[in-house]
Design a protein around this nucleic acid. Sequence first.
DNA 1: AGGCCCTTCCGAAACGTTTCAGTGATGTCT
DNA 2: AGACATCACTGAAACGTTTCGGAAGGGCCT
Lengths: 336, 336
Amino acid sequence: MTTLRDVARHAGVSIGSVSTVLNNTAPVSPALKAKVLKAVEELGYVPDAVARSLKTGRSRTIGLIVPDITNPHFSAVASAIEIACDASGYALLLCNTTDSPAKELRDLHLMRRQRVDGVILVPSGSGEAYVAELTRAATVPVVLIDRTLEGFDADAVVLDNRAASFGIVDYLVRAGHRRIGIVAGPSGMSIAEERLAGYRQALDEHAIDYREDLVARGAYQPEPDYRATTSLLSRRPRPTAIVSTSNHTMIGVMKALADQGFRCPEDMSVASIDDVVWATAFSPKMTVMAQPIVEMTELAAARLFGRLAGTIAGPGAILVAQPSLKVRDSTRPLTE
Amino acid sequence: MTTLRDVARHAGVSIGSVSTVLNNTAPVSPALKAKVLKAVEELGYVPDAVARSLKTGRSRTIGLIVPDITNPHFSAVASAIEIACDASGYALLLCNTTDSPAKELRDLHLMRRQRVDGVILVPSGSGEAYVAELTRAATVPVVLIDRTLEGFDADAVVLDNRAASFGIVDYLVRAGHRRIGIVAGPSGMSIAEERLAGYRQALDEHAIDYREDLVARGAYQPEPDYRATTSLLSRRPRPTAIVSTSNHTMIGVMKALADQGFRCPEDMSVASIDDVVWATAFSPKMTVMAQPIVEMTELAAARLFGRLAGTIAGPGAILVAQPSLKVRDSTRPLTE
DNA sequence: AGGCCCTTCCGAAACGTTTCAGTGATGTCT
DNA sequence: AGACATCACTGAAACGTTTCGGAAGGGCCT
């Protein structure tokens, strides 16, 4: 491995000069510059980011922690973050928590050891103890995506979850539906509660009674949400429409429908939060409330880089993004 | 930030002693160990991986370069690699090339600067110049996934591509199909050619004529493959079945079918290489030739870690994985 | 008691950078 | 012409570890 010393020797100049040329951190004569560049070229010198990091105290690396990279929602996040990092000359350290808060804490620890300059985090835990540990583990700027954490001071970019489910229900009601079921997320999870609240609010505004037996609790995972849907389909009177509250939920809902012999949209209208390419490839093309996930992620990245550059300071801000309804073929007007 | 020096001072021992107990690289007295651990605990000391890397010459970091993290195939790779890294105490640097060989080379360069110990690469380029540059950029062990690169010495884990398409066609023929179209990948790309070869071989073995006009060239992307399919559907006599050669292709095929008014499987049987959850959520559930992508990736990771540990040496090996057919609802027997 | 070997621990060098005080050389002003 | 800035470059310290020669102390043997 060729070092700065080798380059310096080969060019017949000092180590410091090579460094200043490469980082052009001070004016140098054209002659010096030429000599150094030539030597770098001839030796195929590549700077050692590790040594650089040690000296400067910054690693030009950021960490990304997501619950499940396999979920299109989070892989979209990863993609957008990678682009932002590439543009800013940062490297990207990826961790996948598989929805485990314990793993998440371990990952945060890893990030700390690796001396990342900042972290983009999609949190998967909740509770005071969790937040306390998180606060202890986070020694660099953190930007949250999707969720906020009470008691944890950080920037956060989140969806207007209430508006998302509100919009779906509002649309369904206007299309004539009255008995609308929902496959919600786990109780206690802020996102799930907000989406449920939006559902309820829309019902309220249309003066439709809220019925406990029309809400089923899933887990934002295909299997549990399949079961939740199956149970929902057995309620009487049966709903005429179902709102799915995540892309994985959508998988469970559609499978359950098919297995129970329901046609969509003829027998049951379905609309979901989250848009993905796959949702338009098959039959029916899904009516969805799309999250501007790429824009949200870009915002988060900008926020983090702003913190790192010092152009953003002060307590964390919460940025709220608006979803947009895309009406397709999985919902139909109810006329009776 | 607390350093080894702080810990040493606080414990009243030497820096070197702290290092040896933390890495237990030499026997120490219980008393020393206790003192050090206590100090570490009290100060909340976290080792600096950057300094460690500089000193040891190894970063305990590996790089992963994929063409498109947004593709479920590659996010499955990323997930499996992350798990392997976590288990071995490595950190994971992620790069996304968006199918651009130029970006890929830049990423390789980044990896080199960051002094990663090894790289898992899903290559997106081809050609001699590309391989030459790759060879120059790769200064650490590299393991390839999905594709091999002629002239580039590295381990590689690939699918038996020929068997994949062969199996699909064989199945379709046995189900009574004779005019079978294929939406292949870009010509010149090894994977695409192998899959096409398998298609052709299956036809041969069943004594069915190979017809140019039944093969359409796509790009392993939804849009181009949509167009390829549309064109394929206009050929006369029309095929009764279509083999899709990737998951993204599947999206294009199904959309084209729907837009042209074909029902699947009634009017057209479709089977695809690549299995994804989404392919079973909607109607029809797709008949696919599944890649054991997680196993392949685990194998690749094991291979890389073996190289790093020195337990594997010598020239690169090519490991070939077998796909498995999953018959579902998008294909039907042809009886006439 | 003296010599020797182990066992523990210490101290300092080194990894490859960045950074900054310092050294000449050159130009400018009075 | 002398004093003084200015400029381009050098050399060495420092970042936080690991590693290794060596010192100190204790136990065992003759």
